[in-house]
Design a protein around this nucleic acid. Structure first.
Ligand SMILES: Nc1ccn([C@H]2C[C@H](O)[C@@H](COP(=O)(O)OP(=O)(O)OP(=O)(O)O)O2)c(=O)n1
Ligand SMILES: [Mg+2]
Length: 539
DNA sequence: CCGACGTGCGCC
DNA sequence: AGGCGCACGTCGG
């Protein structure tokens, strides 16, 4: 048994190799908090056979209501406020000198805290059905995520730099137009200044105020409505926002984050999302644009390594299929068994056209409706979303929708009841989300918790399935396609790279594992694509 | 100067 | 409607 912490400036090659050697024995147990970071100390590609006892993941599974940093666990469980990284010497990019007293105290304390916190959490886990979720999903996923992070994804930096220059010129031009229409210069990025210009200086009809500060709302929906009313300035602001957002968040930011290998290395966080999903940060590669033409151009910068092709596999309508299964919704089950596209079918009904004639735009709107109604949207919200429908009409639409899918209504009612009874909901695999507010006397809190409950079972089950599929895919790749790499996961999608010529075989393997990961009342279906960049590999 | 917060928006 | 992370402006320490 080894109790270990990470962040060891100056850790020698020999120490790293010896750690890797130790971990190669399946009889070993590695204990710590956030063990992916401990495993990162071993040489890339080193296999880990040891059991992992990860306090962060224990806490994530058992106490789904709070944060899971060691600091938070220590404060809540032991009433101890540990030494901060800053006190240890990490300050403004600086690292503590190896062997410094502050560093030793910090690292020692962290191991001690794990030592003190572990027994209770381990006992709770072992007495819980969540032990299986840990052993079969979260624990084996750790080395899979580490390998993906270390591989990274190749970025065409030159392409984005050229794009940045173009967009910079676009923004200058837009800025000039906007100042002209406004009659003065101001900071377009400031919602406050923009609100003053639009609603005071120019006297446009103010629609609503923001939630917290009660200032003028200037979000896209507000600007779109003004633009529809014929005002020219809001349309230019919208375009400015789109370009500025994509330029600063992606086009300029990503090239600065590539490592010496020319690749982007995200971090997949396994203990953040309340539903069991993974999240991605530094950089977030789960929100790369795709919707707009400009967004699609950005996707072209995500490319396969030389001699490789990108392979993308994504579940088709995963959450609706899970709903059909959990709710045993007969109409939905039958539709999926016939191979129908539910978003398309909804669009056909809503827009009154034949399914074959549904446009991409209409299908997108129908998607919003399907997810919106499923997760408890109000008549007001739906009317807002669709435009051209009154809240009353939208209410009737929702009722008609629930009549057409009576299992959905039943699912919503049963989920609400059991959540109220137990204060929590569970996924198909027993992952738990605690929702104490479901019993609140405050209507707002209670309603929020109710919608979270309805969503969590489904979103969480989808997360379970994808995590399980990732573990299976990785295992088979190592045995059958050892040159192929998992790179990214985006909630219902896996991105891989495979040596040219093997994309079809790799894709087939991935599809088998994803579609076969569970046997539900409806088939799971995976869309496959491949190409030189993430753009081509998504159609 | 820094961190926290609010607004807004990218993705699923 | 649910789930995330990040850029920017603003404000207070
Ligand atoms: N606003 C959204 C968008 C997506 N999702 C969830 C449900 C989806 O099943 C999953 C994947 O998103 P997609 O956009 O891929 O949705 P679909 O797979 O259902 O549609 P498509 O057939 O267009 O891929 O994420 C959600 O809850 N809310
Ligand atoms: Mg999809």
């Amino acid at each position: 048994m080894l109790w270990a912490d990470f962040r060891r400036p100056g850790l020698s090659e020999a120490a790293r190799a010896s750690l890797a050697g130790w971990l190669a024995d399946p009889a070993r147990k590695l204990v710590g908090h956030d063990l992916k970071e401990v495993l990162r100390l071993t040489p890339e590609g080193a296999a880990c056979q040891a059991r992992l006892l990860d306090l962060m993941l224990f806490s994530y599974l058992l106490r789904s209501a709070s944060g899971h940093s060691l600091e938070e666990l220590a404060l809540e469980g032991l009433d101890v406020k540990p030494i901060s990284p800053r006190e240890a010497g990490w300050d403004k990019g600086a690292e503590p000198p190896p062997g410094s007293v502050a560093l030793l105290a910090y690292a020692g304390e962290r191991v001690e805290l794990v030592h003190r916190l572990l027994p209770a959490l381990l006992r709770d886990l072992e007495a819980s059905p969540l032990e299986r979720v840990y052993r079969e999903i979260e624990e084996p996923l750790v080395p899979v995520l580490l390998r993906m992070e270390e591989r990274g994804v190749l970025l065409d930096v030159g392409f984005l730099e050229a794009m940045s220059r173009d967009l910079g010129r676009d923004l200058e031009r837009l800025e000039t137009e906007i100042f002209g229409l406004a009659g003065e210069a101001f900071n377009i990025h400031s919602p406050q200044q923009l609100g003053t210009i639009l609603f005071e200086k120019l006297g446009y009809p103010a629609k609503k105020k923001t939630a917290k500060t009660k200032s003028y709302a200037t979000g896209a929906e507000v600007l779109e409505e003004l633009a529809r009313a014929g005002y020219p300035l809001p349309e230019r602001i919208l375009r400015f926002r789109e370009v500025a957002k994509l330029k600063s968040t992606y086009v300029d930011a990503l090239p600065a984050l590539v490592g010496p290998d020319g690749r982007l290395h995200t971090r997949f966080n396994q203990a953040v999302a309340a539903t069991g999903r993974l999240s991605s940060a530094n950089p977030n590669l789960q929100n790369i644009p795709i919707r707009t033409e400009l967004g699609q151009r950005i996707r072209r910068a995500f490319v396969a390594s030389p001699g490789f092709e990108l392979v993308v596999a994504d579940y088709s309508q995963i959450e609706l299929r899970i709903l059909a299964h959990i709710a045993q919704e007969e109409t939905l089950i039958a539709a999926f068994r016939r191979g129908e596209d539910i978003h398309r079918a909804t669009a056909a009904v809503v827009f009154g056209v034949a399914p074959e004639l549904v446009t991409a735009e209409q299908r997108r709107a129908a998607k919003t409706i399907n997810f919106g109604i499923l997760y408890g949207i109000s008549g007001f919200g739906l009317a807002q979303n669709l435009g051209g429908m009154s809240p009353k009409e939208a209410d009737r639409f929702i009722q008609a929708y629930l009549d057409r899918y009576p299992g959905v209504r039943r699912y919503v009612q049963e989920t609400e009841e059991s959540a109220r009874r137990t204060g929590q909901v569970e996924t198909l695999y027993g992952r738990v989300r605690r929702l104490p507010d479901i019993g609140s006397s405050n209507w707002n809190l209670r309603e929020n918790a109710r919608r979270m409950a309805i969503n969590a079972r489904i979103q969480g089950t989808a997360a379970d399935l994808l995590k399980l599929a990732m573990i299976h895919v990785e295992k088979r790749l190592r045995a059958e396609q050892p040159e192929a790499w998992l790179l990214l996961t985006v909630h219902d999608e896996l991105v891989l790279e495979a040596p040219e010529g093997t994309a079809a075989a790799v894709g087939a393997l991935v599809r088998e594992e994803m579609e076969g990961v569970a046997s539900l009342s409806v088939p799971l279906s995976v869309e496959l694509a491949s190409g030189p960049s993430w753009y081509e590999a998504k159609g």
